[in-house]
């Protein structure tokens, strides 16, 4: 048992526990904070898998932007559903059964998949960051999806502003 196995085990336990807390906790702010812990655990796994660029992007985009957006949304909608009332909907036993079935299906899929037992040759020594950057802008690779993604982000920005503004004017009337 070497260092990477210990790190993986601890991180996996942390991810599972915090994801379970996200799903089960009553307090919304705690749910957001546990979500941040989960995302940081996934970042550690990216670093273990030598996806250095994605580890940094995960911290910047998920922990830095998305989690903060969640916390803002919680602060804006916090009056309702804080403590009182059931947190689970009526059909939750059936839903739990279905998610158990999903897990079984995924495990069966993984069991039958042609997955090698060991990791392949490491990416270490390669210039992964440079290769990623070139793949994103070279015309015979991913430049079109890259541009489409930027247009999508612009559309999402305008859409979010439109949705927020429009409702405010309506409630002012």
């Amino acid at each position: 048992m070497d260092a990477s196995q210990i790190i993986f085990g601890l991180t996996a336990l942390l991810i599972i526990f915090s994801a379970l807390r996200v799903v089960t906790t009553r307090n919304m702010v705690h749910a957001a904070l546990w979500l941040i812990v989960t995302l940081l655990g996934v970042t550690v796994l990216y670093a273990l898998l030598q996806a250095n660029f994605l580890a940094v992007v995960q911290v910047v985009v998920y922990v830095g932007a998305i989690a903060i957006l969640f916390i803002f949304a919680i602060m804006l909608t916090r009056r309702e559903m804080r403590d009182g009332g059931p947190q689970l909907n009526k059909g939750w036993p059936l839903a739990a059964l279905i998610s158990l079935a999903v897990f079984g299906g995924l495990l069966a899929l993984l069991y039958n998949a042609p997955v090698s037992e060991r990791l392949a040759a490491s990416l270490e020594g390669q210039d992964t960051l440079g290769a990623l950057g070139q793949a994103l802008v070279s015309p015979d690779a991913y430049v079109l999806p890259f541009e489409v993604a930027s247009v999508l982000l612009l559309a999402a920005l305008i859409g979010a502003v439109y949705v927020a503004l429009n409702k405010k004017q309506e409630s002012d009337k």
């Binding site: 996200v22 947190q87 999903v102």
Partner: peptide, 19 residues
């Protein structure tokens, strides 16, 4: 797979849209 299942569970059982 386990993390995905927890996500499915959360979507299916919770009533709060943010969660």
């Amino acid at each position: 797979a386990l993390l995905f299942t927890l996500g499915v569970l959360g979507v299916l059982i919770r009533r709060n849209a943010l969660v």
